[in-house]
Structure formats: C-alpha cells, structure tokens
Computed example of a mutant assay.
Amino acid sequence: MSKFCPYCGEELIDNAKFCKSCGKSLEDFKSSPGTQNIQYPPSAVENDHTFATVLGYIFAILIPLFGIIISVYLLTRNDSQKAARHGKYILILSIFIWIISFLLIR
C-alpha cells in the first residue's frame, strides 16, 4: 500500500524522512500520536500538461521556435515535475533541430 505526504499528497517511498516534492520533514508527523497508520491519498491529481507536452514535441520537430516557446511554458510549471522534465527535453530537441536545419540550409 502506498504512503502519501500529509502536506502535499506526493507518493512517498518506504521509510522516507522527507517528502521529495515539498521537502517537509515526515519525522514530526510520524511522532504525533494517532497518526502512524493513516494513509493519505493524493489531494489532487497532478496536472501533467499532456496536451502541451505532445504539442511541444511535435513543434520541436516541425517548427523549433514554437517548440522552444512551449518548452519554456512547461519548464515554468511548478505543479508538475513531469512537465518540467519534458520541457527540458523539448528545449534540447528544439535547439538541436534548429541547429541542424541551419546547417542544412547553408
């Protein structure tokens, strides 16, 4: 059974002392009486920005400038680590495609 952070709802690994998402100490929470066996479901579904991610990859290949714009959008999303990771990949792909296209035009 999965455990979740009581502060932000992020799924935790076994024996975690700190939440990997919000960084809050779980030791204080575990030491409180009556809270040892409580399981917390995520408070909200993480917004993974799937539509923007898919558009970002498509634009990174077809129109790198738009890929860069979407990657910056994804990189600035504080509500999803997954979106930020894809934003970084899209940015790298967009710049790579843009450089290759300039080299092929010359």
Rank of each mutant, 00 (worst) to 15 (best):
N78S: 03
K20T: 10
E10W: 00
T35F: 04
D48T: 11
L75N: 07
D14H: 02
S43C: 14
K17V: 15
Q36P: 00
D79L: 14
Y89V: 10
S71L: 09
S31T: 12
A84Q: 11
Q81E: 01
S2H: 06
D28T: 10
I63Q: 03
T35S: 06
P41S: 15
L91E: 05
P33T: 07
L75K: 10
L74S: 06
S101K: 07
I95C: 08
S71G: 06
Y7R: 13
L75S: 09
P6W: 02
L104P: 02
S2E: 07
A84E: 07
S101M: 08
L55A: 02
D14V: 13
L26G: 06
G9S: 12
S32K: 11
L104M: 14
P33S: 10
D79T: 15
I13C: 07
P33G: 04
A44W: 00
Y89D: 14
V72W: 03
S21D: 01
N15V: 10
D14W: 02
F59Q: 12
M1V: 15
S21N: 13
I100V: 13
I70W: 00
I38M: 06
I38L: 13
A44R: 07
C8Q: 08
S25R: 03
L93I: 12
Y40A: 13
F29S: 13
G34S: 05
K20H: 12
T50I: 14
M1T: 12
K17A: 10
L104F: 13
F59M: 13
S21C: 11
A44L: 11
N78P: 00
Y40I: 15
F51E: 11
I13F: 05
I38K: 06
S71K: 05
F18L: 15
K3P: 00
T76F: 10
G56S: 02
P41M: 11
K17I: 13
L12A: 12
F29I: 12
K20A: 11
K3G: 07
I58V: 14
E27H: 08
S32T: 10
P42H: 06
G23K: 05
D14A: 14
F102S: 09
